[in-house]
Computed example of a mutant assay.
Amino acid sequence: MSGFGWAEFARDLPVALGAALGVMLVTFLIALRKGVHRIVDVAWGLGFAAVALVSYAMSTGDGDDGRRVLVTVLTVVWGLRLAVHIGRRGRGHGEDPRYEALLAKAPGNPALYALRTVYLLQGALVWLISLPVLTLWAVMAAPVFPELWAAVSSPDIDTFRFKADPANKGRIMDRGLWSWTRHPNYFGDFCVWWGLFLVVCTDPAVAAATLVSPLVMSFLLTRGSGKALLERHMAGRPGYAEYRARTSGFFPRPPRRS
């Protein structure tokens, strides 16, 4: 590929932003009706799927069709899996304590505060992280990382089976992938977004325009609302200190000996 179409890239940015914010605004209206803001976490994955589908439609007739389909399918499948997983996990529960604490200190109208600080912010992050997907029109069949297609092993099924067994109530999940990393789902998300970056990275200009996306996702997974937040929540659970001492915090490795 010779050169990077900055004009096309700039053209697609507002359309993708509109798709991400559209998903979040619809979710906001549903949340107001239900009186529960935790459903925004379900919309997080759906936002990425929406941006991928819009980007695929805008890139029709350009780029390499095989890679365009690959990136779109990977993103949509990842987004839908995440939405279903979070939806099932939160079914039957009330408001998320994070959003309760946030809205408790809201200045003025809590609903408008939630719209600004939760929904619009998450929509903007979806758009920013999706930058590699927005370059589908520029993705060419070049021999740059052709084998590095994003693959992720999801431990969701093992988790549901573990929780379904009454004997495991109150115990820490430390089986399968959970014995190699305390956060296999987050590590899987990390692999997906770095993998997508490598798939579309057929030109230095593409890399320069989209590198921020996997970097931001990596920060969110390790230092933001992912690993760090969950570990603070789990810190007081019986047996978690021992599990943390023997198990990697993020990148998988064999468990340490006691």
Rank of each mutant, 00 (worst) to 15 (best):
S2I: 03
S2E: 08
G3K: 03
W6P: 00
A7F: 03
A7V: 10
E8S: 13
A10S: 05
R11Y: 08
L13W: 14
V15A: 14
A16P: 00
L17S: 00
A19Q: 06
A19C: 01
L21V: 11
T27A: 15
A31W: 06
G35E: 12
V36H: 00
R38V: 09
V40T: 14
D41V: 01
V42E: 11
L46C: 14
A49P: 04
V51C: 03
V54T: 09
S55K: 06
S55C: 10
M58I: 01
S59M: 02
D64H: 13
D65I: 09
D65G: 11
R67K: 06
T72V: 04
T72I: 10
T75V: 04
T75C: 10
V77R: 09
V77F: 13
V77L: 13
W78N: 01
L82V: 08
A83C: 01
A83Q: 04
H85E: 09
I86T: 04
G87P: 05
G87K: 09
G87D: 06
R89G: 02
G92L: 14
G92A: 11
A101E: 12
A101M: 03
L103W: 10
K105T: 11
G108Y: 08
N109V: 09
N109Q: 02
N109F: 14
P110T: 00
L120P: 09
L125C: 07
W127T: 01
L128T: 07
L128E: 05
S130V: 04
V133P: 07
L134W: 11
T135P: 00
M140Y: 10
A142M: 12
P143K: 10
P143M: 05
V144A: 05
E147A: 15
A151W: 13
S154G: 09
S154K: 11
R161S: 13
F162S: 10
F162T: 14
K163P: 07
K163I: 13
G170D: 08
G170Y: 13
M173S: 05
M173Y: 02
M173L: 15
R175F: 07
R175Q: 15
L177W: 11
H183V: 12
P184V: 12
P184F: 13
P184H: 10
P184S: 14
N185F: 12
N185C: 08
N185K: 04
F187P: 07
G188N: 13
G188E: 07
F190K: 03
W193A: 02
W194F: 11
W194D: 02
G195M: 03
L196Q: 04
L198A: 15
V199R: 04
C201Q: 03
D203A: 08
D203E: 14
P204E: 11
V206L: 06
V206P: 01
V206Y: 00
A209I: 00
L211R: 02
V212I: 13
V212A: 05
P214S: 03
L215G: 01
L215H: 07
V216K: 06
M217G: 04
L221C: 10
L221N: 02
L221G: 08
R223L: 14
G224T: 14
K227T: 14
L229Y: 12
L229E: 15
L229I: 00
R232M: 03
A245E: 07
R246S: 03
S248L: 02
G249P: 13
F250W: 05
F251Y: 09
R253M: 13
R257Q: 08
